[in-house]
Design a protein around this nucleic acid. Structure first.
Lengths: 356, 356
DNA sequence: TCGATTTATGTAATCGATTACATCTTGTGT
DNA sequence: ACACAAGATGTAATCGATTACATAAATCGA
């Protein structure tokens, strides 16, 4: 049977090149990694042999010997969420520049998938880990940390020794969102949150509550809907919203996709945005600029976040710093667009009944 | 200097476990990879030693010895395009199931980035390559193929020996799109294409022209705008569209993002969709269901495409087939939604002047 | 030109697993 | 209880590079 015919390849090893050039393997290795250590003549001789043989070093052997894999694991909750795609772009830009590769760990919003990637990290397939997710189990995270693996937590502040956080000002932004809505005259709020199990949500909800308090309101002034960071969470929230008699007029969604889902659904019921209900998102994904009306939202510096996170990780890998020194919080900026506006009392009957 | 203090880790090797259990390294290895080859008693002894020491095999050493990296390289044109994110999900589902990891090669629409990933593949960091992109330089692709590396081309039919194609019926769908628009009464067409350098575009444009011909029209009946698969391409196309006197009434966009960008832009000029202009997209991304109006489009079976592509690659890697046997074309399905409709002659003045 | 010093190259150990082969145990049938 | 087969375990080679150390060659000063 000819099953192997089309895979007939002669693997060229460093020894082959050495023989061809009439030098030792050590010399070939030096020519390739540290050319200053060899004479020009030898260098040319070896390079010619490399060229003629088409030699490319076997990276696995290099990794084993040098004990550096030149790979980084990026654990993301969901690839189809543009937020993570955008962060990943930043990470990629930074890492490839330094010659590192990215191994992708996609949880697809299923927490049980983490274990696989913890194993992968623990088996030393990577030199470091970037956590774009908030709910890595503590023991998974810890065991990676304890094994000496550099880790950077992004998108969620993990309060754990030896793990720097590179995150955005979730809490501050969320509080601002509420205050912004309050300034527009809103008195009853809706909060479309992420899932409770995510650490990121803890921060944002805390900020939300701070905002509510700062604006002089209490627990009775808001409704909270929960779900993963996807469109349908917004749709489900909208359906709950529609059932309410004294409907909130100021909605904050912890992610743009939910905000968009919400708007789509309520508009289908002839509820106008922003005249009847204001919606403010979080993330600043590109798509938020193409909806109708365009979404008011907080723009996260996603690309930058990725770059900074990767940079911090590289510094950790190269032992250029202690993890403690490097927790960073990047600011987010409010993009005031079309889905928010002042409360129009006469247009919105449910407000007539509201007391506060 | 305490620079290394927090990185103090004792790496446990197989020899340590062997010593702890009082057996040879060979036995430990057997226990871990092929438990049936050892006695129950020995098995338990070794496992206890593994447990107590917390041993995890060094995967790099395994890779070197077994000559299998258990990694696959996925080269994608752009991560933030939901199309690729979705395909990647399918790939991921299939590969992780088989214990393979994914190394991501993000071109970010910049062709010059390919070289890096070709090198990565050639240095045997991966067991196979999935090409989600259409413009890998022929010599790059060929050198990977010639090195014996299994490759599967997705998203674009690469006509090259030894490289199976797992793609969708681009050409057929594009032709259908034109015919569909023609059936609605449209006579002048617009085509928002991908960039010419992409192989995928060749197929789709061929299909488009077939459709034009099949509907009894000629080169004079359509306008073509070109750009990468992003929102702004649609915006730019819309601006060109707005300058035209006898505007096309049936627009086909080779990707949903462009379609959405186009619609957003023309609606800003009070042009109604679909009353004034019909738009049909290609991809079936999730967003397309959240626009207003919802986008008529061809849904690619993106997740399935990813699964099938990965499956074919695995078969190639395991030498279970010849590449020639495995070119697959998956069908796309038309989702008739709200951005397409019959031509309304009285509402659209430019049509009054049109002759055909 | 000669010895001392610097520079270039070669030899062989090493990274940490797997596995072919050799050797030692155990079990079976008589 | 013995011979022999089958099964379990150990020994050492191997994967393909890098690099410490040893040695050879080139350079320099007098």
């Amino acid at each position: 049977m000819s099953r192997k015919r089309w895979r007939a390849v002669k693997e060229i090893r460093i020894a082959d090149v050495a023989r061809l050039a009439g030098v030792s393997t050590a010399t070939v290795s030096r020519v390739l990694s540290d050319p200053d250590k060899v004479r020009q003549k030898t260098h040319d001789l070896v390079m010619e042999a490399v060229r003629r043989s088409g030699y490319i070093p076997n990276s696995t052997a290099q990794k084993l010997r040098t004990r550096r894999t030149m790979n980084v694991l990026v654990i993301a909750p969901r690839l189809t969420n543009p937020v993570f795609a955008e962060i990943l772009r930043g990470v990629d830009d930074e890492l490839t520049q330094s010659g590192y590769g990215i191994i992708i760990g996609n949880l697809d919003n299923r927490r049980e998938r983490e274990a696989r990637y913890v194993d992968l990290a623990l088996s030393r397939q990577v030199d470091g880990v970037l956590l774009l997710t908030g709910y890595i189990p503590e023991n998974g995270t810890r065991s990676m940390r304890d094994s000496g693996l550099p880790i950077v937590a992004m998108c969620a502040a993990i309060h754990e020794d030896g793990i720097p956080n590179v995150v955005v000002q979730d809490r501050e932004a969320t509080r601002q969102a509420v205050e912004y809505l309050a300034r527009l005259g809103h008195r009853r709020f809706g909060y479309i949150s992420g899932t409770l199990s995510s650490i990121i949500e803890v921060e944002r909800f805390a900020g939300f509550q701070e905002g509510i308090a700062a604006a002089g309101f209490g627990q009775g002034n808001f409704v909270r809907w929960e779900g993963p960071f996807v469109f349908s969470t917004g749709v489900v929230a909208a359906e709950a919203f529609l059932q309410i008699k004294d409907r909130p007029t100021g909605i904050f969604a912890a992610c743009d996709e939910s905000a968009i889902g919400f708007i789509k659904r309520v508009r289908a019921e002839r509820i106008r945005v922003p005249q009847d209900v204001s919606v403010i998102g979080f993330d600043g994904i590109e798509y938020a600029d193409y909806t109708e009306p365009t979404l008011t939202t907080f723009r996260q510096p996603l690309h930058e976040l990725g770059c900074v996170g990767a940079d911090v990780l590289l510094k950790l890998i190269h032992n250029q710093m202690k993890p403690e020194d490097w927790s960073i919080r990047l600011p987010v900026t409010l993009l005031e667009r079309e889905t928010t506006g002042p409360v129009l009392h006469k247009d919105y009957k449910s407000l007539r009944r509201s007391k506060v």
